[in-house]
Design a protein around this nucleic acid. Structure first.
Length: 315
DNA sequence: AAGACGAAAGTGGTTGA
DNA sequence: TCAACAACTTTCGTCTT
């Protein structure tokens, strides 16, 4: 969360390259889709960027001292939260001297409990497996780190409440990840989750609904505007068109045209209308392809929107 | 010829008895 | 567990540009 705020402070940056489309040198890093995009023409010069660097920013020396820490940052994505301690197996102290028999016995006992407390019991092993699964999927989907963290927290909660019993670990991990996406407002569909796991969409959906109920999590209703953003990126539309689509969506919401309808359909229709109005026409087929829905659905939503919003489409 | 439109039948998932 | 139901898809014929 915090990282996003910091990033948006100065989103444009020079990467030391020129855009092959328009020759400018200002780019924006889009962490949601993990792409580096030219700010003036939208050309993608790099894909699958990684978020490197510390997650904090320091504005002066005092803050820097306060914020710097020793060791790796704590994370929920490793089963012991990254705080594991290793106990050396040699019976020597830090100076290389042999330990006395009493000390040796103590170190032996320490090692024993260290071993026992880590991955020995079943739930811990389960957690370790699930978390590695989570990072695999989220890497495949180019999801930002904060989503992965959120998903890990959700999964931990599920384990604590014993919701995993009788469900496959993979199903629950996929569901947790999907939940995290919804919570953080990142547009990913169940189909996409299913595509990169060996679990069917149906099962992920079932696990997801189950977890939402059991954890009584507050998940915001999935918002078509996430998808509008995505579509206009995928279809390489100018920013102004995206804005029009957003406005269409906003008025559609006021008139209650969005309830009960699939968010994908609404977003696709709004994008279609905007592209038509803005003289950057995309065919229904093109949009339908990106949205993974049919032209018919776009048409139906489109018709409703045009009618109810009294938009006059210039021919 | 490609795109848009619409009717009709089919599909998968939710809901409520 | 089952039927009703709404949203969405598939298919296909027709109209428009």
């Amino acid at each position: 969360m915090n990282d996003n705020e910091n990033k948006s402070a100065d989103p444009t940056q020079q990467v030391g390259k020129k855009c092959p489309e328009c020759g400018r040198e200002r780019f924006i890093k889009d962490y949601e889709t993990a792409e580096v995009v030219c700010i003036s023409c939208g050309f993608v010069i790099e894909e699958k960027i990684e978020d490197t660097g510390p997650e904090w920013r320091a504005f002066d020396e005092e803050q820097r001292k306060k914020r710097i820490r020793v060791g790796s940052p704590m994370t929920y994505t490793i089963h012991d939260k990254g705080l594991s301690t290793m106990i050396d197996w040699r019976d020597k102290d830090t100076y290389g001297k042999k330990l006395s028999p009493g000390q040796r016995a103590q170190v032996y006992r320490l090692r024993k409990w260290q071993r026992r407390s880590r991955v020995s019991d079943a739930t811990e092993r389960n957690l370790a497996f699930a978390l590695s699964e989570l990072s695999k999927i989220s890497a495949a989907l180019n999801l930002p780190k904060n989503i992965l963290e959120t998903a890990s927290v959700i999964y931990r909660k599920a384990v604590k409440k014993r919701l995993i019993r009788g469900r496959s670990i993979q199903g629950v991990t996929a569901a947790a990840l999907y939940m995290a996406c919804r919570q953080c407002g990142v547009a990913r569909t169940l189909d996409e989750m299913a595509q990169f796991t060996s679990v069917s969409r149906k099962e992920i959906g079932r696990a997801y609904r189950f977890m939402v109920r059991e954890l009584n999590a507050q998940i915001p209703q999935s918002n078509p505007s996430y998808y509008i953003n995505r579509f206009s990126n995928q279809l390489v539309l100018v920013g102004s068109i995206e804005t029009i689509a957003m406005n269409v969506l906003k008025s559609a919401k006021v008139l209650q045209l969005t309830s009960g309808r699939g968010p994908l359909g609404i977003a696709a229709a709004a994008t279609y209308i905007a592209s038509t109005l803005g003289n950057e026409k995309r065919t229904q087929r093109e949009i339908a392809e990106q949205a993974n829905i049919t032209e018919v659905t776009i048409r139906n939503r489109y018709k409703e929107l045009i009618e109810k919003l009294e938009i006059v489409v210039k021919l």
